[in-house]
Write a protein that binds this DNA or RNA. Sequence first.
DNA 1: GCCGTTTTCGGCCCGACTGTTTTCAGTCG
Length: 579
Amino acid sequence: MDNAKIAAAFDQLADLLEFQGANAFRIRAYRNSSRVIRDYPESIASLVHTDPGALTDINGVGKAVAEKCVALVQTGQLPQIQEILQQVPATVLDMLRVPGLGPKKAALLYRELGIENLEQLEQACQQQQVRALKGLGAKTEQQILQGIAIADAANQRIYWYEADQIATELRSHFSSCTGIDQFEFAGSYRRGRETVGDLDILVVSSDPEQVMDHLASFPAVEETIARGDTKMSIRLTTSFQVDLRVVAQESFGAAFQYFTGSQAHNVHLRGLARQRGLKINEYGIFRVEEEDEIYIAGETEEDLYAALDLPVFAPELREARREFEWAEHNTLPELITTTDVIGDLHMHTTASDGKHSIEEMVAAARQRGLQYIAITDHSQRVTMANGLDPGRLLEQWKQVDQFNETLDDDFLVLKGIECDILEKGGMDLPDEVLAQADWVLAAIHYGQKQPREQITDRLLEAIANPHVCSVAHPTGRLINRREPYAVDMDAVFQAAADHGKMLELNANPVRLDLDDIQCAAAHSHGIPIVINTDAHHIDGLGVMPYGILQARRAGLAREDVANTRSWPELRALVGVVSG
DNA sequence: GCCGTTTTCGGCCCGACTGTTTTCAGTCG
């Protein structure tokens, strides 16, 4: 059982307890445990087997949660959840996905009307039974009906790059709005999360009404969810939500910090403030004295963090993972930036399933400021993609050699291959062919549904192959589309570290594979990360910034990423076991 | 349920907006 599954169980337990009206702090403790476990870089299940006593060393995991982890790993179930499900059907939790419906109203509907699922809820609203309940009225009934219709779409998180497109359109839309002194996007978009649930716009303006009117006139607006004096929420035709907040100049930094989050980061920050007799809200940081609250700072994030003797954390790090610990020990990493990457070691050409020739890929890569690329077409097993057999591959490499001679000294094309890891195990090309490559990626394309042990063995065998330099898209996941393979990543990290191999962070915004937590875990094993575009088109080279954003979220510095180095320096790292 | 350089008990981040209410609970971020 992986950490995500364990975390999901605690989330479900928290949802059920909230529905039952349990103590709010107990619920929060479970949610906190869930987050900590989901973000934990090592396998909790392994810990349960090897050293269960160490579970409570994890901040946010106490005796009760540790015991539940053991039960979960050993039996696959949580007795407490089973117990509650005797009394409450699991489908009631679907009601919580309806915008505007929370645990209190859902529990009321279940208790008073016996509503157990969304179908019954819709019926009850249509038959006007809901408005009869105390505290609920006709408007709520209408809202629920609308909410049911968009429940799935409204809860869908979109890819970061899609949010980026919307953000660009909104920024452009607001360029014609006068009276705006500052305009920024905050939230998970600013933190660079791989998916984004909504967009948060923060504006400094003396005329909030005008700014809100301007947002309402954005062409893609479907409806206004809420609009007050300083805050407005809209839903786009795609059901995607955009929140706007208008603040005063002296509060801009505090609001920017607050709306950037994450919630867990903010909770921790505010706890630190309380310990010092300070209070943080979106208007500033205040000293609490008797009756008064005295404004200390808030115009910039720098001022706000400085008031707590903290550095301004890069937004990508604000997840209450390790940033506060790093700050305390003065070991905050200087995060990698987009200009640090100078090579790209995974791309395809017309020889397999790419759309452009080697020459075209090179020209596009040079235009993007790269100094070297590896051509890594598919190997023969990947028939759908016209994969290369040894003959075609050796022919391509001859072309690469010839082409390199026509280039200036400031650019290099590497003879590479994305060699399939066969379903039965082993590499798709003979060792004597792989030995002639400059750069060998190993990747799984078939047998993705194999049992955990089998897939893990395939990967470990590939990593041990002396010609393999790196594993491409190591987990095979496609965000929102396909689960990762069942694979023992702890074993993969151990093997990569033992053999001195690199792991890829595939920058395709739908892959981002490894993810941020896995990247951080790989890094803690001393494994160099190589960020590649896996481009199948010259435009595909443009996805590199998404990968870099993910690397930043993993806390990686320039030196942690292999393709920030010159090719000779990078190549010298392969096979070197640090110790 | 978790946590502790004030604390092993008593705290736990904070505010905007809405709908249904006559002062506030629920939801959301």
